[in-house]
Every structure is written in structure tokens, then in C-alpha cells.
Nucleic acid binder design. Structure first.
Lengths: 201, 201
DNA sequence: GGAATAACCATACGAGCATATGGCTTCCTC
DNA sequence: GAGGAAGCCATATGCTCGTATGGTTATTCC
């Protein structure tokens, strides 16, 4: 049911996600949707929460993989961040849903709460990565981790917007993606200039 | 009339900007609004266009002032960019309106066109500033101006999001603004490391 | 000065929506 | 096997919205 909601919003915006449309898309009746969700707001909020959870889970898995492979933190971050970019149709859909809810967050406090929370989590994880980088020698010790996390998370979000405007698959899109990746790499390089000095045991 | 629309959207979101509400807010009848705008879409698009025009005009004035005062390009950019940040109630309102339309742009091509165009203008102006910086010695000649503009515009947009989440006026807000300004200053510093070598005549 | 054009209004209409209501079935559980 | 909860549905209700309609009052221009 949340999947149907996601699909509708991704395809035609929040306004298209009516109770009737969700029910039809999910193959149920309107009444059943009401049976599980007391109101439309509840349904939307649930769908939104679930999507952000999925995103964060994917990122967490990538982090775990990177750590298992003993990759430097810089490389792990470089691998994770484009997970939030609209690089294929699935992630373009997520981007659209996220944007729709960001607008809704301006007026609906419960949505704003979720948006704020996920943003805080992302920034916190980046900040922790920078702190870890200090310990293992990738990051200079005087670096302000919070400030770095602020810049990096802002940059990711901003680049996502720029990337979305170019339709996927074209040559212009490929060039843009290259540019965005290069920017991210550069910026990560400026915050993580060193080599990890930990040795495999 | 566009002002009334702006006010409503800024205060309560796109959904609150109904024909009746706009008419009431502007002190006219619904019929008169219809007389000037063939459809609601037309009204919304006009209001959006006008707002972006206002923003770009303000920026252009700041640029002109900075050039008249022979300020270095880096300083002019540092002065202009926060113009798009939600630093006071007026600009918070503009931010909300812009966000609402960005979401709408996902589904309405005419809105997407305007959003895309203004984004292109902003990026183009930054790129031109970088090119100018090369000529006067502030920027290293091998710098990729398009890439720099991409990063800077993404950074501004991303930082705007981060800034908005903190309510204005608090101490947390002031700290965040400081941090955002510091980041922007740093980044401008990395793209504009030199001094202008032009002399006053 | 008269006709056409523009400014301006109240109200009607019809569609779409969220939600409420009252039901029917299935499946546990005591 | 009675009964009650949970799964499931069709339809009614009432509201809000964009737009259509048919006007009246100014203004302008020949």
C-alpha cells in the first residue's frame, strides 16, 4: 500500500495520490485503506517514513560493505553519497517523492519532523565519518567535523537538484554526472587529504 | 494580485492559494482575477515568475553596487549569495514559495521551464564571475568556470535548506548562519585565491 | 453621444475529494 | 459452535475548488 502511494507520487505528484487512486493502484478498496490508516495524512506520512528508511538502509549497507573491505573513509563516502542522487529511474522517483514531501513539510509539522530528523541523521553520520577520519589519519585533527558535514550534506542536496534537471540517459546528463562526481571527489579530497595509517591485523 | 498570491503561498502553501483566497486577499472579486488570468495555472506561473525576477533584480543591484565600489569579485559574490538564503521573514517567505514551486515543477512543465531558466541564469552569472576573475587575477587560469559555478550554486541551494530548518532569531540559528557564511567564504576563497591586479584609473 | 472595450461582480455549476456509514465475510478463540 | 475481532467492500455525504455565465458600471475613442 505504501508502495502504491510511492509509485503514484513519483509518477504524478502528491495531488495524484488520492485515497481512491492509492486503493486502485494497490488493488484494494478505499475502505481497506481507511481501515489501516485513520487519515490520508497518516498514509502519506507512513509512505514518506518508509522511503527514507529504505534510503538510509541502503546507505548503511554500503557503509558496512566498505568497512568490511577496509576501504578508506573517503572512498566509502564517495560511494554512499550518490545513493541519494537521481541517477536512475528508481532514484529519480525517490527524488520526486522527497521533493514533494519537502514542500509539504513547509506546512505540515509532522512531515517537517521526519524531514528534519533524516537530515540530522545524514549530517551526523558524515560528521562521525570525519571524526573517524581524524583517528585514522585521513583527516587533519583541526578540522571542524560539524562544519564539514554541513558543507558536504548541503553539496549533495544541491547537486541532486542540478542533476535532476537534466533528463537521464542523454550525453548532457552523463557530462553532468561526471562533473558532480568530480566536485564531490575534490571536496572529499580537501577534507580527507591523508592516508589511513591503520594496518590490517 | 501577484503579491496576494505570494503572501498566501508563503504563509500557508500552494494549496492555500485558491482563487477565492487570492481574490479576498487582494480585495477583489473572483471574477476579476479570472478577468486577468485565464486560469489558475496562469496566475501561479505569473506570481512565480515575478518573484524570481525580483530576486534576480536584487542580486543584479548588489552586483552593480559592488562593481561601482571596485570590490573584488570574491567579495561581490559573498555579498550576493546570501540574498537567496532565508535569513529574514521576507526571504523565508520567498524560500517557501520557491520550494512550493520546485515541487510543482516536477509535474507542471511550464513551471519547470521557469525554474530551470532561473537556475541556468544563476549558474551562468557565477561562471561569468569566475571568468572575469581569471582576467583580473583573482582566479587561477586553469580553473573550470562551469564546474566552479556548479559547485557554488549547489552549495548555496543546499545551505539554504539547512538554514531554513532552524527557526530564525534563535542562538542556534545565528550559529548556523555563521557556519554557512564561513563555508561559503572558504569555498570562494579556494576558487578566488588571488588579488585583483587592476588599478584604478 | 454612442458604441465598443475594459473593469468589475455575484452566483451557479459540476467535478473531485476525504471521510462516514453500514454492511458482508473470514478466521480465530473460548 | 457462538461470538467477536479483523479483513474487506460499495456507496453516501458534505465540502471545496476551478471555471462558466450573465450581468453592471466605467472609460475611451470615433
Amino acid at each position: 500500500m505504501a508502495a502504491a502511494t510511492h509509485k503514484l507520487i513519483a509518477h504524478a505528484g502528491l495531488d495524484a495520490a488520492t485515497m481512491a487512486a492509492v486503493a486502485r493502484e494497490a488493488g484494494f478498496s478505499v475502505g481497506l485503506v481507511q481501515h489501516y490508516f485513520a487519515s490520508k495524512d497518516e498514509l502519506l506520512l507512513f509512505a514518506y517514513k518508509q522511503m527514507t528508511e529504505h534510503q538510509l538502509t541502503r546507505v548503511a549497507r554500503k557503509v558496512a560493505e566498505g568497512e568490511a573491505a577496509r576501504q578508506p573513509i573517503r572512498a566509502i563516502l564517495l560511494d554512499c553519497m550518490p545513493e541519494l542522487w537521481p541517477l536512475d529511474e528508481a532514484r529519480r522517483g525517490e527524488y520526486r517523492v522527497a521533493k514533494a514531501f519537502h514542500a509539504r513539510a513547509l506546512d505540515v509539522p509532522t512531515v517537517a519532523e521526519v524531514a528534519r530528523e533524516t537530515a540530522t541523521v545524514v549530517r551526523g553520520q558524515i560528521a562521525r565519518a570525519v571524526e573517524n577520519g581524524k583517528e585514522c589519519g585521513e583527516v587533519e585533527v583541526q578540522t571542524d567535523a560539524e562544519r564539514a558535514a554541513l558543507e558536504l550534506s548541503a553539496l549533495i542536496a544541491g547537486l541532486a537538484d542540478e542533476l535532476y534537471s537534466e533528463p537521464v540517459g542523454g550525453q548532457g546528463a552523463r557530462a553532468l554526472i561526471k562533473a558532480a562526481e568530480a566536485i564531490l571527489e575534490d571536496r572529499l579530497g580537501s577534507y580527507f587529504p591523508g592516508e589511513c595509517h591503520h594496518h590490517d591485523r
